[in-house]
């Protein structure tokens, strides 16, 4: 016994170390502080209370890192907000186009405008659909707002549209309200000109102009624009009617190609009658 006590006294530091290490491991293996029950709640509550008292004291290092984090978050949120706004605008446009699909009885093919060119008062747009998608020369191009133009060139995957704002534009049009017919042309301004309407015909500012059923190139009843101004010129039998296009060409992004090609039988008949009239005129 004496020897044991001497041993303990001699190695008391190592024995204490071993005991405390074992005790520490035992505490660790016992698990978390939840076993201390209410005592833990008191400690956590007290510490939390003390921390809340000094919470107003600014921590420059933490503030700096928080600032950096907030800046990054701000940038990220700005990008997301911009994307959201873009998506919202696209969503509105696409919804309108979806409605258009229901209104127009012909088959529509959606396309994105990927380029615009202007050469000597001839405005064109390039779209990302071509022959492989079923696009053909002469097809009508519209948006939910109205008539855009006509397909004038097609490759396998792309097509070129001749826009309304083109000096070659000549469209048989009519005033929706009074059914007055005329020829729509563009003379280099932001508006179109409705020609061949006599001064006695009823046309007023605000009237909607649509494609005529006389047109051999466009399907009828497609909105072209709205009358902006009506001018009666001296010494002229015709009125000068300026039409504001329904389509906003500078912001044109998505279009629909209408699966419409002129009726060949009708074209052939009209051409034959025309030829006959000319022949009669030549030989009265």
């Amino acid at each position: 016994m004496q020897r044991f006590i001497e041993f303990v006294v001699r190695f008391k530091n190592y024995i204490t170390l071993c005991t405390l290490v074992v005790l520490s491991f035992a505490l660790m293996s016992a698990g978390d502080l939840s076993q201390l029950g209410g005592f833990r709640a008191v400690i956590v509550g007290s510490i939390g209370w003390m921390q809340s008292i000094f919470a107003w004291v600014p921590n420059p290092v933490a503030l700096k890192s928080e600032n950096v984090a907030l800046r990054e978050l701000n940038l990220q949120l700005s990008v997301e907000a911009a994307r959201g706004r873009q998506a919202m605008v696209e969503n509105v446009t696409l919804r309108k186009m979806l409605e258009l699909r229901k209104v127009v009885d012909k088959k529509l093919l959606a396309a994105d405008v990927i380029g615009k060119t202007t050469t000597q008062l001839r405005n064109f747009a390039t779209i990302n659909k071509g022959k492989s998608d079923g696009v053909k020369d002469g097809m009508t191009v519209i948006t939910d707002a109205g008539l855009v133009g006509i397909v004038t060139g097609v490759s396998d995957h792309y097509a070129v549209i001749q826009l309304l704002l083109n000096r070659d534009t000549k469209i048989a049009a009519k005033v929706q309200r009074t059914r007055v017919d005329g020829i729509l042309a563009w003379e280099g301004e932001t508006t179109l000109l409705l020609k061949n309407v006599p001064t006695s015909y009823d046309v007023q500012a605000g009237d909607v102009i649509i494609t005529s059923n006389y047109s051999t190139r466009f399907p009828e009843n497609i909105v072209i624009g709205r009358v902006a101004r009506v001018e009666d010129e001296r010494n002229s039998l015709f009125r000068r009617i300026l039409v504001e296009p329904a389509v906003n060409f500078p912001t044109l992004e998505q279009v629909f190609i209408v699966d419409y090609t002129p009726e060949l039988e009708r074209l052939a008949l009209e051409r034959m009658v025309d030829d006959k009239q000319r022949a009669r005129g030549a030989n009265p």
Partner: peptide, 9 residues
């Protein structure tokens, strides 16, 4: 509120 015994050890 750490695992009891860690800092003790």
């Amino acid at each position: 509120a750490q695992v009891p015994g860690t800092n003790a050890l």
